[in-house]
Amino acid sequence: MEVLVFSIFNGLLYGMLLFMLASGLTLIFSLMGVLNFAHASFFMLGAYFAYQISGFIGFWPGLVFAPLIVGVIGAAVERYGLRPVHKFGHVAELLFTFGLAFVIEEVVQMIWGKVPVPYDIPETMNVAAFTWRGLDYSAYRLFMLGASVAIFLALFVFIAKTRTGLIIQAALTHPNIVSSLGHDVGKIFMWTFGFGCALAGVAGVIGGNVLGTEPSMAITLGPIVFVVIVIGGLGSLWGALIAALFIGIMDNLSISYDLSLYPVLALFGVEREVEGIMQDLVNLTTAGLAPVLPYLFLVLMLILRPRGLFGTRDV
């Protein structure tokens, strides 16, 4: 029982980090209908900027300035890159962001090199807040949890309750009416995209020092973020939250309990020391499968319920 609670808690910590990343992506999608393939690249930029800034003036200024810079870059990308291709439809936008991801990776390698950079957790927060089952939980991990919860609440209030949020939502479905009401729809899209990228930047600042800051971090993290927003339902903030937590907790449970397929196979008379392809099946455990399980759920979700858990339209 304690293992269960323990795994759920660890899954919560990891899941909230995933949510922080996915929130910006799902926000951009829900407001603009753009599936931003370069989202994880903005996450990476956030981590690298934070590394650079924290080297000069410390972690906290980095937490403020790095997302700001990422947000401005994001806004510029929308204004000068995405908008011209917008008129060619969503496929063109998709391809644009896809190419952008490679460009950003190459630029990052040119500036900071191809080997990982030593971006560290601030020393003041790298102390154990509490210890559970022999594992230390640093103050920083609790800060990560707090920050991601705060982001969720702030986003929720911003989109659903504020005037700006309502205008943004209206601009997506009825841009002409919003425009004739005197709002600059182009500007709304630009800043929404920038804001979504800034959210990825925040996740980069907070997560980059835990996951390691290196040029391939965007490529390895990108797919899982897409899984989160597809399972949760494209454009749904609640869905992203639930899906991120689900993936985080499932990851931890499958590693902690580490179930094997062997007992099932044994019923059919398969030996432990079997040769060939069966050997891989016998040795298959949920721990070994853990990073692949989310993709299995992605496939199942697309087959059974293409709109995701909380989505309003099909993928």
Partner: peptide
């Protein structure tokens, strides 16, 4: 592919 090593550490 493994982002979070905490469950293995546990």
């Amino acid at each position: 592919k493994v982002q979070d090593f905490t469950p293995f550490i546990a």
